[in-house]
Amino acid sequence: MSASTETGSPAGKTWKSKEEFLGCVILTDWILLVVLFAVLLGSFHIHYMLLAGDWDFWIDFKDRRMWPTVAPIVAMCFAAASQSFFWTRFRLPIGATTVVLALLIGEWINRYDNFWGWTFFPINLVFPSALIPMGFWLDIVLMISGSWLVTALVGGLGWGLLFYPINWPVLAQYHQAAEVDGVLLTLADLIGFNYVRTGTPEYIRMVERGTLRTFGKDVVPVAAFFAGFISMLVYFLWWNMGKWFSTTKYLEIEEV
């Protein structure tokens, strides 16, 4: 870009016109957006595959206890870090929505391309968890409160609580019951049984394993509150992680 000043513009002026300058800013903005989006997509996708993994891959892992606990907590890491970057540097209320959208685009490419396209697992076995409304919640709480502390507490709790309800509209249909050879199964169990996964035996599912059993059948709210509380802690940690990642360090000229 400095090349144009040497040949084309009057001495001392970087830009020929205001329009040229604005055009360059807009172009750089778009490049930034695309690059940031791609970087967040790649890194968040790897993070989420490693930590939420099977819980997010398979419909028959999406139970009422482990999945709504694990998935929001590990998703919170990148949401908090991304907010820290977008909010403190740019006052942009899009940190959380951007990462969850990036993650979901990456996941959908993966599920459609690999799980369905190459291995023929039907999409109703392998669709990802919905997260977008949680991103809206977190971004707008931060925007209105203007405080990352409030966002950690209120936003974090809501993040955990929203997870199951926003996934239920898709999940409910697969929790209808069917009978196979005299055994009662939900459609989710049945899809997992029908569509053979050689490397994923049934026993690695963790369907409602745990110790907290005193709330009867209300398993989800307990898991959701727990996920909310842990999400608060994760938010504190990863907000600072994001802050640390978005600092610019310069080298002294003598060191170069």
């Binding site: 139970d63 239920w168 509209p169 409910a172 989710a188």
Partner: peptide, 16 residues
């Protein structure tokens, strides 16, 4: 959420 509950009033947890 309400629409899902109205359409599928009877659901079960996964069986394991």
């Amino acid at each position: 959420y309400a629409a899902a509950n109205r359409e599928f009033p009877r659901t079960l947890p996964m069986q394991a």
